[in-house]
Amino acid sequence: MRVFVNYKTLWMLAWLVCWPPLPVRAECCAAQVKMAQLVREGPNYLLSADIDYQFSEKALAALQNGVPLFWELQIKIQQPRELLWSKTLAETSIRYRLQYHALLNMYRVKNESNGDVQNVSSLAAALDLMSTLRNFHILDNAGFAPAPATVLALKVDFDRNALPLPLRPLAYLSKQWYLSSDWTLWPLKN
């Protein structure tokens, strides 16, 4: 007779009961912001960034099996303050959806912030689309006078809440699903 209450279930239950666990970090699968640059061109501040997305075995299997994956590139311009938390001068985000189309054997990258959809034939191409950000308009300089300490903060956040419901508990507990990056700070260039 099969034992359906397997050890994994019991282990997860015990884990949940013993909540909160330590933050699960996995350097192997986390995304990285390789470069970020905010350049003023005329009245606008334009952002250019290079991001390195990483896939764990589980995440790749999920993508190949039709599970859509979501990343959100969070962008903030912050001014550090003494004794207080940093003041956010500007904030925006870009949300990407990556999904594999079995019929076309293509990967679809959708920028959910502006609705752009691109279909590419390989995962590398799809990641290239998401990785390279050029001249993204952040804000115009009307009333914006950056202090010398003002920084550009970027973070790639993998949205685990957008995963199918059965995957979510595992995604919170397994390092295979920690695909987000940390906040990275970049100095502003005038």
């Binding site: 359906f4 997860m12 039709g66 419901l165 059965p166």
Partner: peptide, 18 residues
């Protein structure tokens, strides 16, 4: 849909069991 469900089979079992 079927492929996704098939992929999520163990997760589904685990999730429901949990």
């Amino acid at each position: 849909r079927y492929q996704e469900m098939s992929f999520l089979r163990h997760s589904l079992k685990l999730s429901f069991s949990l």
